[in-house]
Design a protein around this nucleic acid. Structure first.
Lengths: 130, 130
DNA sequence: TCCGTAGTTCGTAACTTATGAACTATAGAA
DNA sequence: TTCTATAGTTCATAAGTTACGAACTACGGA
């Protein structure tokens, strides 16, 4: 009978810039983290994402949360059958001031730019067809 | 006779946060970039690194510079037999304000912390032996 | 005790990265 | 022009990483 390993969280001083950058260099993981740390709710259970985007298998999501946790970006706690994740942004802000805000802001800028590009394309298509 | 492909540089609007984070999540590449963009000289030829750190094979260094270039962090130009690399930090600062300064600063913080940890260990060793 | 839900682990296929050997490209000497 | 040295690139491949389905654990409630 193989048992589940306990959840590992690095101490704040063991969190590395490379680790943070690596974990946030994946589009799914930045999106999760942006939701958690940004405008969204302070806590998020992994299942929320499975419900909102059925395209990501749950084993993959589980690995993404593990990556976020082991890089120190997120604190996870089991509550009954579900897992609650909270951002460790305050701690990280102490160690690496400005890093996470800058990344999240860049992420927003990029998303806004993409949305604008899509609108432009739609407008062009309408002009051609009309 | 296979010829060398031309150097590809993305347009500023095609540079992605994920690409930047991924490329800078490698310790060798952040170190190169920090040297280029930070306190060091504005231009750097790849060979400089081979001379200063013999432990990295030149084919590996070549790939690292290609990664930096294709993520949009660096502009490379061939000058005779050597390659000159310059940071594209001004352009990136326009697109993603504060992102690169925050990463470079975090990198400094981390290096400073590591240096302090090493000194602490040395001090402990001296106390034990003395 | 059995079922359903939430998440984890494992095996493996697909992808990425590092590196040595062989190459291109250029400058300068003979 | 041809030879030689230097700087960097490409290619093959070995080593490492990641994604995902199937089978599992863990917990709550009927």
């Amino acid at each position: 009978m193989k048992l589940m390993r306990p959840l590992m969280h690095p101490a704040i001083e063991d969190i590395s810039v490379e680790g943070i950058l690596h974990v946030l260099s994946d589009p799914v993981r930045v999106a999760i983290y942006a939701e958690l740390a940004g405008s969204g709710s302070a806590t998020m259970c992994s299942n929320f994402l499975q419900v909102s985007d059925r395209s990501i298998p749950k084993s993959t999501l589980s690995q993404h949360f593990r990556a976020l946790r082991e890089a120190g970006l997120v604190r996870s706690e089991r509550h009954g059958v579900e897992m609650r994740n909270t951002s460790r942004c305050k701690e990280i802000e102490q160690r690496f001031p400005g890093l996470l805000p800058a990344i999240l802001n860049a992420h927003c800028v990029q998303n806004a730019g993409q949305a604008r590009a899509v609108k432009r394309k739609q407008a062009v298509r309408k002009t051609k067809s009309g």
